[in-house]
Design a protein around this nucleic acid. Structure first.
Lengths: 227, 227
DNA sequence: CTAAGTAAAGGTACAAATGACTAGAACAGA
DNA sequence: TCTGTTCTAGTCATTTGTACCTTTACTTAG
């Protein structure tokens, strides 16, 4: 009876924004882990692992992420449970996949190693299992969610300019946005609060620094019990 | 190693619309199953069961639903994987929950029994496990999805009037909609196609019957691999 | 046969949100 | 001081959303 039960695991698709050059626009990157065992030995895969008896699913996702990539995400949300019969050769595996966001600074700190490397999200190699499709779905969810929620903030630090926030939107949505109209829309939602500080150093008018409105629902996930 | 693995199950929240009186507005109902074993013996719970080695998660949800309630849903979508440590006393259970819609006629056919009964979604008794919270979340997803997709059709049959379609929206969203504006919006999306038939019998101008546009994405779930 | 009642179906008027665009303000660096 | 750049505020046309009105076409009562 128990022997026919599918094997259960959690994995996480975690995105960060990276700027390759000073002029080039930022793009989405994600860390992958090299598999050492079969099946798919040597291939790159999403970080993940088993669930312990004492931890919830989201805790398991966070722990596995920390253990394999040393990253602590700013945002973590369940993506989907994948469980077709043939997705893992040999064993039946059900993967509960999370998706997450880290800010750029935090992503820098987590050094790459022989078995952990960052890849551009829109140009991945052939991954283990169905992980290419999973990343594709995570990307869709992220882009979708950018349009009706305020998760963009998870890519940024404590204080930021509206230009930086706009850069996040432009990178994820993949199209340029009008600075003036963007400002109007963001200010209308009141998701953001102006501080008195400004950022100097640029060869132009110093932009005002903003911070996020604490009393603002960033994710818009409904009455979701933590799980 | 395997002994510490959580037990895996699927459950389904399945909604249908019911009209109690001719004048009263339609409301959401869902079938529940009486538990015979402990824990929560005697309590009402969501229909569900274990996953077989040969079936996918959605197949398992559909099969368990058919076996316990004799219902075949018009629409079936994964809701969430619930897996906190304390959600089932004694054993650790991870439930992959689906939500589904059936049209009224199909719901009528599935007779109630001693151990299966329909309940109004907004007035449930105390259910087993965390199932009250799960239904609440499913309701939120349904209402949310009504606003940006065309799932409403899953509540109706092959042909329907715009008034019937509007009734579905009004029941789920819980507020009246302007008939004229509703018509304009629906026709603008082209999700619906006018037939030449009209529905006679009412004491008023006979409304035109519509059918759904086949080449129209009803769910808007993105590049989701079946799972 | 006619009048009354009802919902269908089409249309108008106003408000709000959005998108394209213009222009002055405020800095760094030459 | 001049120049290049971005920040920031504002205008205007268009689209979208909401409220409401009118006519049409049927059924039923008398």
């Amino acid at each position: 009876m128990l022997s026919t039960q599918p094997q259960l695991a959690v994995s996480t698709v975690i995105f960060a924004l990276r700027k390759t050059g000073a002029e080039s626009p930022a793009t989405l990157w994600l860390p992958l882990v090299r598999r050492i065992r079969e099946p798919f030995g040597g291939r790159w895969a999403l970080p993940g692992g088993p669930i312990r008896a004492s931890e919830s699913l989201s805790d398991a996702a966070g722990r596995n992420l920390l253990e394999t990539t040393a990253l602590t995400p700013q945002y973590l949300e369940q993506l989907y449970a994948f469980g077709t019969v043939e997705r893992s050769p040999g064993t039946r595996v059900v993967s509960i996949v999370y998706w997450a966001l880290v800010e750029a600074e935090e992503a820098e700190r987590a050094a790459e190693g022989e078995n952990v490397r960052w890849f551009p999200a829109d140009d991945l190699p052939e991954l283990a299992f169905d992980h290419n499709a999973i990343v594709g779905y995570a990307l869709w969810r992220l882009r979708n969610k950018m349009e009706y929620s305020r998760i963009a903030h998870a890519f940024l630090g404590e204080r930021f300019t509206l230009a930086q926030l706009r850069e996040v939107y432009e990178a994820v949505l993949g199209r340029p946005l009008d600075p003036a109209n963007f400002r109007r829309q963001i200010e209308a939602t009141k998701s953001v609060v102006a501080t008195e500080e400004r950022q100097s150093g640029g060869r132009h008018r110093p932009p005002r620094l903003f911070r996020y409105n604490e009393s603002f629902d960033l994710a818009d996930n409904g009455p979701l019990p933590h799980a």
